[in-house]
Every structure is written in structure tokens, then in C-alpha cells.
């Protein structure tokens, strides 16, 4: 897998803590896949692939740590970033007719990529977005452009339902028939959704995140307890029934050295 180092074509500031970096390059990634993003002399981290067009792809990035702080502070349009990938197992739309996508905060970009593919296939797509407050909701216009049935929840009630997106999911499932649920967001939210899917006997796929090194399944850094599966290669997308067999899902993860830390 050769390293690409494309120039940043433009940077969209979605909100003060979230930006979308646009690259003019045909990546041909499948929804749910990720790349390893290298900022020279800083670090390299896994980032989910968001919106894609024939000649461009978007990476939606939240400011959450040293890497992303350095990225936000020092990197401008025209600069080059290193990219390895795409890697990982993508979401599987199977032969679903009606699906529900749930994006929690900065987990929204792969949901957007999946919505693009689903709508192209004519799948009826309900989207539920959740964030702490309305400023942090992501890509609402893009989902509307795609003609998805969009619902939002904010913790402070500044837009849409006041509370969690899982409230909307539970409500919707009472009246709507859904073939499969897809979700990416905070792990505790995805754990809750996996349980809701199980109770309702609905297929569900979740996208996990762990500390990674190689990105292609050889180093073992992102192996999950219980199943021993690799998040970078066997995932990041897992069927929720498999995810619920991961004894650490919704509970803990490991640091760079392998020590467990609670979520």
C-alpha cells in the first residue's frame, strides 16, 4: 500500500471543533472504510472517510487530541498530508430496502458516505443525528440534499428532540419497519443501539474505533478482547451480534502500551 500525499483542496469549518478537509483525488473507498492520516513529525491516526465524489473525498475531523490540535493550528489549504488506505471492512447494505443511519457527533462522516451509496441504490434512508447542541450537528444539509428522512436530537434541546438520538430510534422502530440499522458515534451510544437492535430483532452494524498502528491487520494493536478480532481489518464495521461478543465493547479499550482503560 503506497503512501499518497495529496494537497488539501479546501477546508470547511463546520463548527469551532470540527472541520472537513477536502482532497481532489479518486479514493474509491467503500462507506465505513478508513485511512491512516499522517501529519509529518506529529503522528498518524485512523480517520473515517466521509463524502466522496468521482474526483474528491472528504475527511471530517474533530479537534480531540494532540494530532488534531496540531492539524487545526498548523495545516492550511495547499499543504500535503500523508494518506495510507483505504483500509478495513465497510458497511454492508445487503439487499435492504429500508435502513436507518445513526450518527453521533463526530461519528457522522461515514454515515454520510453510506447515505450517498444507499440513495444511489434507491434505498429508503432514515437518518438520526445526535449532538450535545445544535452547533455541533454535522452535515444536515448534505443529508437533506440526498433526500434522506432526517431527524435530530440535541442534549440541550437547542434543535430537534431534547435528549439522545437513541430516544428517536426507539420511537421510530415502534412505527417503522427497518431492515438494518447502521451506526457510528460514541461507543456507549452504539452499545445502546446494538441492544435496541437485539431487542427488536433487527440487523445492525456498528463502526468501532481503537488505537491503531499498521492499519492492515498485522501488528495486533487494535485486537479486541473476547473475539480477538482486529478492528482495522476484521472491522471497523462489525455486525452488532459479533460486537456484543467483544467483551470490551461499550466497556474499555487499550492504550498504546496495551493497558486497559475504561471508556
Amino acid at each position: 500500500m503506497t503512501l499518497l500525499s495529496p494537497k488539501i483542496d479546501r477546508i470547511i469549518e463546520n463548527n469551532p471543533t470540527f472541520r472537513t478537509y477536502v482532497f481532489k483525488h479518486h479514493l474509491s473507498a467503500k462507506p465505513g472504510q478508513f485511512i491512516m492520516l499522517w501529519l509529518p513529525e506529529v503522528d498518524e491516526i485512523p480517520i473515517s472517510i466521509g463524502w466522496q465524489e468521482e474526483d474528491e473525498f472528504h475527511l471530517g475531523i474533530a479537534k480531540v487530541g494532540d494530532f488534531t490540535e496540531a492539524l487545526f493550528k498548523n495545516v492550511k489549504v495547499g499543504d500535503r498530508l500523508g494518506i495510507r488506505g483505504p483500509f478495513g471492512k465497510p458497511f454492508d447494505l445487503k439487499d435492504s430496502k429500508k435502513i436507518m443511519l445513526i450518527g453521533g457527533g463526530s461519528g457522522t462522516p461515514p454515515m454520510l458516505s453510506l447515505a450517498q451509496k444507499a440513495k444511489k441504490k434507491g434505498i429508503e434512508t432514515t437518518v438520526v443525528l445526535g449532538a450535545r447542541t445544535k452547533e455541533l450537528l454535522l452535515y444536515e444539509n448534505k443529508f437533506k440534499e440526498l433526500d434522506c428522512d432526517l431527524h435530530v436530537a440535541t442534549n440541550d434541546g437547542s434543535k430537534g428532540h431534547k435528549g439522545y438520538c437513541t430516544d428517536i430510534v426507539e420511537e421510530k422502530l415502534k412505527t417503522h419497519e427497518i431492515d438494518c440499522i447502521y451506526t457510528c458515534g460514541p461507543e456507549l451510544m452504539m452499545y445502546k443501539i446494538a441492544e435496541i437492535a437485539k431487542e427488536n430483532n433487527i440487523e445492525c452494524q456498528v463502526s468501532l474505533e481503537r488505537f491503531m498502528k499498521c492499519g492492515f491487520g498485522i501488528c495486533g494493536q487494535c485486537c479486541i478482547d473476547g473475539t480477538g478480532l482486529r478492528v482495522c481489518k476484521d472491522g471497523p464495521v462489525f455486525d452488532s451480534k459479533i460486537a456484543l461478543q467483544h467483551q470490551e465493547f461499550g466497556k474499555y479499550r487499550r492504550t498504546a502500551s496495551g493497558i486497559k482503560e475504561n471508556l
Binding site: I218, G220, C223, D225, G226, T227, G228, R230
Partner: peptide
């Protein structure tokens, strides 16, 4: 140095 990081991974 390959995958032998955790017990679960080696079992896999």
C-alpha cells in the same frame, strides 16, 4: 511482534 499482543488475539 505480529498479533501476539493479547491472549484473545493469539487464540484467534
Amino acid at each position: 511482534g505480529y498479533l501476539g499482543v493479547t491472549g484473545a488475539s493469539m487464540v484467534n
